Computed example of a mutant assay.
Amino acid sequence: MKTQEVLDIFNQAGAILHGHFILTSGRHSAVYLQKAHVFMYAELTEKLCRALAEKIREFLAGRQEDLPDYLVGPAIGGLIPAYETARQLHLPAIWVEREQGRFRLRRFPIKQGARVLIVEDIVTTGLSVRETVEAMQEAGAKIVAAACILNRSGGKAEIGVPLISLADYAVPSYAADNLPPALAAMPAVKPGSRPASSN
């Protein structure tokens, strides 16, 4: 699936919003990808995750030692894509969730050394993936890679493991103290699922 096909699905679901948004990273942007609007529709989610599963298969080809035991999604954004991608790959899906502000693997016992592949919806700075890597390493897992539907970092996100992205869609974002005048003139909204970071 090409990037434009992914964006067409987001547009079909009304999930590409324009305005002044505060991202989870704390940065500001004139474009917000409201993936929850896509995940409302099982058929659209299935299309995206089937294509992502195929990219994961390509990445893992010939790497028998890296075949994951689980796919892991960071709550909340990664829950649905991790579940559906796991279904496409015939693997179990588990998730990490916040406990006192930090991701933890709370509900699922895993064996030491279990191989996991993290699935996220959208990567901007990579913070959620990095936090998921840390949580899973604390749980004794080996991180094979991470995957996302959309990488909007322009290749700048540092997550410490290989990143498989279905589509790359770089959208400019700005520090709060360095906004373009047109963006600064608009009221800002914070549509994400957690408070914006100060980083």
Rank of each mutant, 00 (worst) to 15 (best):
197 S>P: 11
126 G>Y: 00
186 M>Q: 10
145 A>P: 03
197 S>H: 15
177 D>L: 06
153 S>V: 05
69 D>K: 05
62 G>S: 06
14 G>V: 03
103 F>C: 08
193 S>A: 14
80 I>P: 01
143 I>E: 01
75 A>K: 08
13 A>G: 06
144 V>F: 05
62 G>W: 02
146 A>L: 05
155 G>K: 04
183 L>C: 02
180 P>Y: 11
170 A>M: 09
18 H>R: 13
105 L>D: 00
39 F>P: 01
53 A>K: 00
114 A>C: 01
63 R>P: 01
50 R>L: 15
193 S>G: 15
79 L>Q: 06
67 L>Q: 15
105 L>W: 01
168 D>N: 12
119 V>W: 07
135 A>V: 09
138 E>D: 11
26 G>T: 06
33 L>C: 13
25 S>C: 07
40 M>D: 13
138 E>Q: 12
16 I>S: 08
93 A>S: 10
141 A>M: 00
120 E>S: 00
133 V>M: 03
67 L>W: 14
57 R>W: 10
88 Q>S: 15
51 A>S: 11
47 K>A: 13
51 A>Y: 07
180 P>V: 11
36 A>R: 03
166 L>V: 02
92 P>A: 15
40 M>E: 15
157 A>G: 08
64 Q>C: 14
183 L>M: 06
93 A>P: 09
95 W>P: 03
24 T>K: 09
109 P>Y: 13
181 P>K: 10
197 S>E: 12
85 T>W: 04
96 V>W: 03
122 I>M: 04
48 L>C: 09
139 A>K: 03
166 L>F: 10
95 W>R: 09
111 K>R: 14
